[in-house]
Computed example of a mutant assay.
Amino acid sequence: MALAIFDLDNTLIGNDSDYLWGEFLVQMGYVNADEFAAQNAQFYEDYKSGCLDIMAYQRFALKPLSEQSMETLNKWHAQFMEKFIEPIILPKAQALVDEHKAKGDRVIIITATNTFITRRIGLRYGIAELLGTNGEIVNNRYTGEVAGIPTFQEGKVTRLNEWLAKENETLEGSYFYSDSFNDLPLLEIVDHPIVVDGDDKLLAIAKEKNWPSISFR
C-alpha cells in the first residue's frame, strides 16, 4: 500500500475551482461584479506566473465566506457544484483514483484552494481525505482570516509532513499527480512524481528530470 496524492485544480478537474468560485459569485450577483472579477482574474494570473501572494489571495477568497451564514454558503456551494464543477469532472481522473484504491493505496488530495470549496469536490471523486487551506471559523462563521499554514508551494510539504506524522504514514512508494510548477517542492520528495496536463514550466522540468507526463483531458 502506498500514498497516492492528487492536486485538485487543473489536475483532477478540468479548471481551477478557486477561480471558478469567484466567477460563480460574480455570475450569481453575490459580489460586486466589476471589482471582484478584476481582482479574481489578477490573482489567477499571479498564480500561473508563480508570484502569488498567498495570504493576500486567501483573505480575498475568504472575505465573501465571512459575510454569510454557513446555511447560505452550503446552498451556494450546491449550486456551484451543479453549474461549475460537474461539467469539468474528468472520467480519466476518476478511473485512476479508483485504480489506486483497488490496489489498496491511500488516496489524498492536497490543494492550495480553501477546504470550503474543495472538500465536496474531493468527495465527488470518492476521496475523503483532503488537505487544503483552512479558513478560520469562530461561532460557526468564517472570519475571513486564514487558520494555520496555507497548502501552497512549500506549505504543501509542511502540511503533508504534519499529516504523515499524525497518521503514522511514510512517503515510501508514494505518488503525486500535479499540473503546476508551483507544486515542485512536493513533486521532488515523492517516489513517483507524475505531471498531469502540465503547464509549460512544469513540462520543461519534467522533461529534464525524466518524469512521466499524462493527460486526463
Rank of each mutant, 00 (worst) to 15 (best):
F152R: 03
K156L: 07
I127D: 12
E145T: 08
R119F: 03
S174Y: 08
G104A: 04
D183Q: 13
A95F: 00
G148R: 00
N139Y: 08
E99N: 10
T111N: 04
G173W: 02
A78W: 00
I117G: 07
E154P: 00
I109V: 14
E172T: 03
F80C: 08
W76A: 02
Y125F: 13
T118N: 02
D183K: 12
S180F: 06
A112K: 02
N114L: 00
A78K: 14
Y142N: 08
N168M: 06
W76P: 00
G122C: 09
R120Y: 03
L96F: 01
T113P: 03
V196P: 07
K83I: 10
I149Q: 13
I194W: 05
G104E: 02
N134E: 15
A78Q: 14
F181R: 09
R106Q: 10
I137M: 14
N161G: 02
A147S: 14
P185A: 08
G104K: 01
V196E: 06
R159N: 15
I110T: 03
H77A: 02
G132R: 05
P91M: 09
G132L: 10
T113W: 00
F84L: 08
L187G: 10
I109L: 04
E82G: 01
E188S: 14
T151W: 01
V157R: 11
I137H: 09
A165E: 15
N140G: 07
Y177G: 13
L202Q: 03
T111L: 02
T158G: 03
V157H: 08
D199C: 11
G155Y: 02
G135I: 01
I109P: 11
V196Y: 09
G198Y: 09
I137V: 15
D98M: 04
Y175C: 04
I110V: 10
H100C: 07
A128N: 13
R120N: 12
T111M: 03
G126M: 02
V190F: 12
E99M: 11
L160A: 12
D199P: 08
H77Y: 07
D98V: 01
L184V: 14
P87C: 09
K83S: 14
T143E: 04
T133I: 06
Q153G: 01
A128D: 14
E169N: 01
P185C: 10
H77I: 00
I194H: 06
I85Q: 11
A93T: 01
I121M: 01
F181I: 15
D191A: 15
D200K: 10
Y125S: 02
I137A: 08
A165K: 14
V107Q: 05
V195Q: 12
G132N: 08
L164C: 13
Y175V: 06
L90F: 01
K201N: 07
P150E: 09
F152E: 09
I110Q: 05
F176L: 14
D183F: 08
L187H: 11
N134I: 11
Q94S: 12
F116M: 00
L186E: 11
